[in-house]
């Protein structure tokens, strides 16, 4: 059996749960096993309908007041109980702030292998080999879990995209009929409370909404200094687009938090995304890889951003970006704004 631990918020499945179902179904079919989705919630009944659409062979619900708000101790105890009862071959959760927060605890408690941030898998005879990105995705590492018994895997968000509902052959496989529905009883009420959520807020409430932008020019750590970020502003202005940033730009205080694109920032899918001096870490890619046209400018030809880009220029951004701005302006008959911050770096 393959066991998926579904993630949800506000009585809805999170998108990662659908991605886990893709990986889970692939593994189950290839290994000739069944697929079980576990719902851990205060009131799992409200999620059962949505879980059916994932096409599992079985849905197991674990109910309990202590399961929400999320507490790693409680989720660890619940999943450990499920695992020792059902002995699944693989237990899948997202490589998310929930999945990588509790699954390593279950793995360590049971002394069984954990593959973090999995992006791919293959069968090698009787064994399953998983691929994980290392060195900021410049390299891929294939690992084989040792021994017999459950193996734990967190799946990198975006690595197992569900098919669009209108594509042929998608949707839950109806041949297996309705999934079996089981309630799993485990007493979680006696666990000591060691961590308690006392508040929740949005870090970048309000201001900049990049989600609806048509064109985004985003700058990364390659810009090197706050003063140089004007290069990005100028290109964005010439293109009539918005400005975004990778995390280090925000962490360094060059731009406010609401400019950040990626897993802990905004998710965008503009018509045109220009990534300047951004390496393309997985956490950045999940926030922008569905953009229609992606341009990457980076001096490192091996930068992983080129794996999602449509057009690439391998060169020094300080010489290339002002040229692009100039060309676009010439094309549109614009003149450079007075006091432009953009072109001050040629001497470097």
């Amino acid at each position: 059996m393959i066991l998926i631990v579904a993630e949800h918020a506000d009585d809805r499945l999170k998108p990662i749960s659908r991605e886990l179902a893709v990986l889970g179904r692939e593994l189950a079919d290839d290994l000739g096993r069944t697929l079980t989705v576990a719902i851990l919630a205060r009131d799992p009944a409200s999620l059962v309908e949505e879980c059916r659409a994932l096409g599992p062979d079985r849905i197991v619900t674990v109910a309990g007041d202590r399961l929400e708000p999320y507490d790693p101790d409680v989720w660890t105890a619940a999943v450990e109980a499920l695992v020792s009862e059902d002995e699944p071959a693989f237990v899948l959760a997202g490589h998310t702030s929930t999945g990588y927060d509790f699954l390593p605890r279950v793995a360590a408690r049971t002394g069984r292998p954990l593959v973090p941030a999995c992006i791919e898998w293959q069968r090698h005879g009787e064994r399953v080999v998983f691929t994980r990105p290392v060195f900021n995705a410049k390299m891929h590492m294939r690992v084989t879990p040792k021994g017999e018994g459950p193996c734990f895997v967190t799946a990198a968000p975006g690595a197992f995209p569900p098919r669009e509902p209108d594509e042929a052959g998608s949707g839950p496989p109806q041949d297996g009929g309705e999934p079996r529905l089981d309630a799993f009883d485990v007493d979680l009420s006696g666990l000591p409370v060691r961590s308690k959520r006392i508040g929740r807020e949005s870090a970048a409430a309000g201001a900049l909404d990049l989600g609806s932008a048509d064109i985004i020019v985003a700058g990364g750590r390659g810009i090197r200094e706050k003063e140089h970020f004007g290069l990005i502003d100028d290109l964005a202005e010439a293109l009539g687009g918005a400005v975004g940033a990778s995390r280090p730009v925000v962490d360094s205080g060059w731009r406010p938090r609401d400019y950040q694109i990626g897993s802990s920032g905004q998710t965008v899918s503009p018509r045109l995304y220009v990534a300047v001096g951004i390496s393309g870490a997985v956490q950045h890619l999940v926030g922008m890889q569905s953009s229609r046209c992606i341009v990457a400018i980076n001096k490192d030809a091996d930068a992983p951003i080129f794996k999602v880009a449509h057009y690439g220029i391998v060169d020094d951004l300080f010489s290339v970006v002002p040229e692009i701005t100039r060309t676009v302006r010439a094309l549109k008959g614009q003149s450079p704004p007075v006091g432009s911050a953009g072109s001050g770096r040629e001497s470097d």
Partner: peptide, 18 residues
């Protein structure tokens, strides 16, 4: 608990035009 089977440079996606 996991054995490294292989480390390699990922294939470049051919869709990018340099």
């Amino acid at each position: 608990l996991c054995q490294v089977t292989e480390v390699r440079v990922p294939e470049r996606d051919h869709r990018v035009q340099m």
